[in-house]
Design a binder for these strands. Structure first.
Lengths: 206, 206
DNA sequence: ACCTGAACACCGTTCAAGT
DNA sequence: ACCTGAACACCGTTCAAGT
């Protein structure tokens, strides 16, 4: 038995079935060994989860940013956070829980920072833009897997809104809230609006 | 023993110590009864959590929106989501996990919808604005308790950024990312920007 | 150095038995 | 109708004992 084998096996379980399905005893059984062996090689459950995230992080690479205009490239960099979280929802969740979210996200953050710089933002304004985009995107990425259809709600928002009668609320809002959301559309729309506002007046560095 | 006493006690535990600290056996001991009594009165753990959220929701009331301009009032309505989540982080988390987030949030959502309508937004545009604000705020509210200082990260973002050397990244971004974030400031700044963009050209209803 | 079984202190849940 | 204890099938973790 080796530390590597244990971590690989655990990583596979978490990636496919989520962290709830990972137990020291089940993992040991699956590896054909005693639970205590895991303790010797990697330590307790928390250390195992940390090791998982570390291995996963080391495999990560930011893919290339696309788009011609600065705004397009910034949105493209931001989209990578979402794409990544959608591809590895369970591991993203574990990384966050273990306080390692920043470690996982760093390569993507650097790519975004470069695009903001290339767009001509400087100083305090650039810093603010970075934080703003980061938190909007980070929040969206946390929100998405908790929304239907990823997680079916027992009291879906649409149903609750169907019972709403309020003359002070516009019909367009009622219609929107009574239909299932198009998350991709909201993501793109929000980012475009935000990036446009953040870039207003900035001149791309040559 | 009554159903009400059980739920109240469980609610108190979750509210103060979080859902991880709620166990059927500990709760029973605290109530001076056998675990099985809880099963008779409210059912298993999941049903107990649902009952918790239901009771909590029934106590909720949206407080009044403040501000003179439409934009100020919209931001004020949005801010209530954050204030509420900060006041009851554990219960918000449980509501989300149990797919009851929409139920809890509905009163606040209605207040926001009314302000958007009062600001003069109509139809498809009003619907989109609603979703946009809702998801930005909802995401922020999920993100905030996972960020330092609420949850101390083992590899804080600030530390990771201290080691970054990259001529293609503006110094303002590096400085911002190396300092602890002012979450309240980011929240306000993001919302003001977003609401301004969403309201552009809209005329308040009479 | 590496692996084991036994044991401890917990869980949630079921069910037959009591009153 | 309401409550109980015993039992089942799980957990994570420790530790003395083996090789």
């Amino acid at each position: 038995m080796t530390r590597d084998r244990i971590i690989d096996e655990a990583l596979a379980i978490v990636e496919s079935d989520g962290v709830d399905q990972l137990s020291m005893r089940k993992l040991a059984a699956q590896l054909g060994t005693a639970p205590t062996t895991i303790y010797w090689h990697v330590g307790g459950r928390e250390q195992l989860l940390d090791a998982l995230v570390e291995r996963y992080t080391s495999r990560l690479v930011a893919s290339a940013v696309s788009g011609r205009s600065p705004a397009e490239r910034i949105v493209s960099a931001a989209r990578q956070f979402r794409d990544h979280a959608r591809d590895h929802p369970h591991l993203s969740a574990v990384a966050h829980e273990r306080g390692l979210g920043a470690t996982v996200a760093l390569p993507l953050q650097l790519a975004l920072a470069r695009e903001l710089t290339a767009a001509g933002l400087r100083g305090r304004r650039a810093g603010r833009a970075m934080r703003t985009i980061l938190y909007v995107v980070g929040g969206f990425v946390l929100l998405e897997p908790r929304l239907p259809p990823a997680t079916p709600a027992r009291r879906p928002s649409e149903d609750l809104w169907r019972d709403v009668e309020d003359a002070d609320i516009d019909l367009g809002i009622l219609q929107e809230m009574r239909a299932p959301p198009d998350l991709g559309d909201v993501f793109e729309h929000t980012l475009e609006l935000l990036v446009a506002a953040l870039l207003r007046g900035a001149r791309p560095a040559r």
